[in-house]
C-alpha cells in the first residue's frame, strides 16, 4: 500500500441544535485540532447545519472488527427476552 502523504485523519461529529446528539458526519484531514475544526466546518457545515462540532483523531477511536461481529452481536439475537417487546404489559399498569 502506498504511504499516505495526506495530513492526519479526523472524524467529525456535529450537533444540529443545542441539546441534540452529536452525529457522525464523515472524516477530514488536518494536522492539529485547530485546523481540524476549521476543515470540519468548511467541509460539513457550509450551509450552517450545526451549532457545535467535535473532531476526534481517527486513530484514537477503538473499533470492533467485523470478524468479531459474531462474538459481539450474535448472542443478543436469539434471546428474545432481551427485547422489551418480549414482555406483555400487566393489565393494571396504565401509565407505562
Amino acid at each position: 500500500m502506498a504511504a499516505d502523504t495526506q495530513l492526519d485523519s479526523w472524524e467529525v461529529f456535529m450537533q444540529s441544535r443545542p441539546g441534540a446528539n452529536f452525529t457522525h458526519q464523515g472524516s477530514i484531514h488536518a494536522s492539529d485540532k485547530k485546523m481540524a475544526l476549521q476543515n470540519a466546518r468548511d467541509t460539513y457545515s457550509r450551509r450552517s447545519e450545526g451549532t457545535s462540532i467535535w473532531v476526534v483523531p481517527t486513530n484514537e477511536i477503538a473499533a470492533s472488527s467485523p470478524d468479531e461481529a459474531d462474538m459481539f452481536f450474535d448472542p443478543a439475537n436469539d434471546k428474545i427476552y432481551r427485547m422489551p417487546t418480549f414482555y406483555t404489559m400487566p393489565e393494571g399498569a396504565k401509565n407505562i
Binding site: 488536518a30 476543515n39 468548511d42
Partner: peptide, 11 residues
C-alpha cells in the same frame, strides 16, 4: 492543495 482547503477557499 487538498480538498478541505479547496472547500475553504471557494467558501
Amino acid at each position: 492543495p487538498f480538498i478541505e482547503e479547496d472547500l475553504a477557499l471557494t467558501n
